[in-house]
Amino acid sequence: MPHDHHEPLSPSGHPYRADDDRDLTYWQVMEIAVRELLIEKGHVSATQIQDQINTMDARSPANGARLVAKAWTDPAFKYALIEDASQASREMGFDIGPMHLIALENTEKVHNVIVCTLCSCYPRNLLGLPPDWYKSRAYRSRAVVEPRKVLSEFGLEFNQKIQIRVHDSTADMRYIILPYQPAESVGLSEAELANWVTRDSMIGVGLPRPPA
């Protein structure tokens, strides 16, 4: 019987996620205590905290895509981006906070890919929250040992003449990749090009592609 399963499945055929009926952890209790104290003492309001969460949630890869599209169409900006990506991002109007950003250019001969083996450093101020796989132990450990195999699992195959450069965000810098512009996109406007730039292409595990 196809549905003779002791756990009921959702209409899409997946098991329902169990309720998280667990005790709060030590640090969850600590966070709630500190937050409530800050509110009770009048240092911040619940609205201000929620506004900040909304600001963080609103950051998306679309910001990085605009940066890449501008670099593809404006050689002076591309130069500035490679020289000092933090400064170039701020000049474009992005509030990246104190982030120290390095832009790495993919070429016909070099493909860059980003990982943080020690934790999960990611240019959140520009690309938003990292995908779950980026934080997984599997990606973090394998990306430096067998990057070509990892990239092939993302659907990318590179011949041996192309150098793969893996960048491990071990300390204070954050990275964004300037993907190699597809030949068929040359001549499009900056706004059109931004739709070609995917989140994964700015991490190095994808390539730019025509918008769906």
Binding site: E146, P147, I164, R165, H167, T170
Partner: peptide, 19 residues
């Protein structure tokens, strides 16, 4: 240098920030 003969491609590189 990092992985010896296990390296997928000896000429690929890994870059990291080191104090």
């Amino acid at each position: 240098e990092v992985w010896g003969p296990r390296a997928e491609n000896p000429d690929d590189v890994v870059e990291a920030e080191i104090y």
